[in-house]
Design a protein around this nucleic acid. Structure first.
Length: 493
RNA sequence: GGCGACAUACCCAAGUGGUAAGGGAGAGCUCUGCAAAAGCUUUAUUCAGCGGUUCGAAUCCGCUUGUCGCCUCCA
């Protein structure tokens, strides 16, 4: 196809034309979750964005080697390399071993992944399966003189040896208030230096620790991604993605350690997804249980804020599902905003997405199975516009507009519309070519009997009785609609 | 304190120099005993405010206001 793919590259702060280094094959690494708790829908937004990127690349005819990591080793809760270990904290909270915690939340994460129709990565990589690679990377950095040891603490990366260190994130190191909110690690040469390997404390045994040339300990937070990405995708990746919050610290550090180790650029494109913001009133809905009594702590004037896991209360996909929304409703919701734009989450907004998807499906469902080749000028034109939209930095909200307009085009046959729906859905991933399996409530027998009575009433034009019965249905959460031929249908409201 | 992002109709949200996509909701019409569903029509002389550049600005520049974020961990 003629249209070029182009994406906004965080590294250059510009949109650039994308072409894989190796023709036809894209290497893509996505920072995955630390599995110490459920993912909330804000986390999930990032994976939906990455899925859209992956699908767009494939839509463009490229094959994608897609690696997503599972961070199943605890890091410290602070980048100053102090504080508690999130995994151990999670284990203590639930009275389980860290390994059980990791397994449990990994499974939960993958379940969400599938429910959202995210394409399975080429490979999931676990941090604990790559300890030797991480040690080797730290070793290389030490051999090349980029690391130093702080006795009793760990091996640190010397950011002063990498002059380009602040460039990626546009850091103003002087302006940063070192230690303003976190403790300063004694012995660090620069505030930005970070741990590559941490030594286990002498007085207590950690649940996860490994032998290394420096003694027993555990890897620093950033090495795992560099080690795994390079092992599976080579020293220079085509695309590395994650949430925007990774830019400053995590990705900056990944670049430093990777490029110092190999002498080569680590990733050609850095693509970051924006956050899902949460309206203050939504924060009162804790995961799992229904909100009870807890008034939002934010004042009435507070605006939406970032959804945060550490606050303890957050909305998970399970909560969304339990409230009666479908996973595709949430996926559609993500599709309505550009990935680099904040998206405000509210139940009202999710309602809108659900209604939109519903009415979209009302148009697409009758066309399921009727797909014909896309060959007319009109059909090709829509396809071209759709491609142009998503190839232009993943313009999915725009593409959704194309879909709607296309469905209204009188110059298109149903077959062509069906063909275009199937074509677009390869990128959208909404499963529009498959009939929706709706978990409808079963109709209670007493209502079923009333349906017959209503039919009789309608035949003798007893509109009063007919309407009474319809009200009875409504009272129990069911709707009734009459067909022109005299029959009636019920549906869940 | 330092750095940055955002501000488009009732709501969500595209558009990034050429005269405001799309969706939801609402309204009107058709259909209907009435509804529902569906179809059609309709909803911003205007893009937070104020200046500037330009033949032309929602789009670029400056200032102001408001909101959010980063500078611990976080998608």
């Amino acid at each position: 196809m003629s249209e070029a793919l182009s994406f906004y590259n965080t590294a250059s702060r510009k949109q650039e034309v994308f072409e894989p280094r190796q023709p036809g094959v894209v290497s893509m690494y996505c920072c995955g979750p630390t599995v110490y708790n459920f993912a909330h829908i804000g986390n999930l937004r990032s994976y939906v964005f990455e899925d859209l990127l992956r699908r767009t690349l494939e839509y463009a005819g490229l094959s994608v080697r897609h690696i997503v990591n599972i961070t199943d080793v605890g890091h410290l809760t602070s980048d100053a390399d102090t504080g508690e270990d999130k995994m151990e904290k999670g284990a203590a909270r639930e009275g389980k071993s860290v390994w059980d915690i990791a397994e449990f939340y990994t499974q939960a994460f993958m379940k969400d992944w599938d429910r959202l129709h995210l394409l399975a990565p080429t490979k999931w990589t676990k941090a604990t399966d790559h300890i030797p690679e991480q040690i080797a990377l730290v070793r290389t950095l030490q051999d090349k003189g980029f690391a130093y040891v702080i006795a009793g603490d760990g091996v640190y990366f010397d950011t002063a040896k990498f002059p380009r260190y602040p460039d990626f994130a546009g850091l103003d190191i002087r302006g940063m208030q070192e230690g303003a909110r976190i403790g300063v690690v004694e012995g660090k040469r620069s505030a930005t230096d970070f741990a590559l390997w941490k030594f286990s404390p002498r007085d207590s045994k950690r649940a996860m620790e490994w032998d290394s040339p420096w003694g027993r300990g555990f890897p620093g937070w950033h090495v795992e991604c560099s080690a795994m990405a390079m092992k599976h995708l080579g020293q220079t990746l085509d695309i590395h993605c994650g949430g925007t919050d990774h830019i400053r610290v995590h990705h900056t550090n990944e670049i430093a350690q990777s490029e110092c180790a190999t002498g080569k650029p680590f990733a050609r494109f850095w693509i970051h997804g924006a956050w899902l913001l949460e309206a203050p009133e939504e924060k009162a809905s804790p995961a799992g249980a229904a909100a009870s009594g807890g008034a939002p702590s934010a004042g009435p004037t507070a605006g939406p804020g970032k959804m945060s896991k550490s606050s303890g209360e957050f909305v998970t996909l399970d909560v969304v599902l339990k409230k009666g929304y479908g996973a595709m409703d949430y996926r559609y919701f993500c599709l309505t905003a550009h990935y680099r734009q904040y998206l405000n989450f509210s139940w009202e907004a999710l309602d809108t997405a659900r209604d939109s998807l519903k009415s979209l499906r009302r148009k697409t469902d009758p066309l399921i199975g009727k797909a014909a080749p896309i060959s007319s000028d009109a059909a090709l034109g829509w396809q071209r516009r759709f491609r142009a939209a998503i190839f232009d930095d993943l313009g999915f909200p725009n593409a959704l507009g194309m879909l709607n307009l296309m469905l209204k085009d009188p110059d298109l046959s149903d077959g062509e519309k069906a063909g275009l729906i199937a074509d677009f859905d390869r990128a959208l991933g909404l499963d529009l070519t498959v009939a929706e399996v709706k978990a409808e409530k079963a109709l209670p027998p007493e209502l079923s009997a009333l349906l017959d009575e209503r039919r009789a009433a309608r035949q003798r034009k007893d509109w009063k009785r007919s309407d009474e019965i319809r009200d009875a249905f409504k009272a129990q959460g069911f709707g009734v609609k009459d067909n022109p031929d005299g029959t009636a249908q019920w549906f869940t409201l």
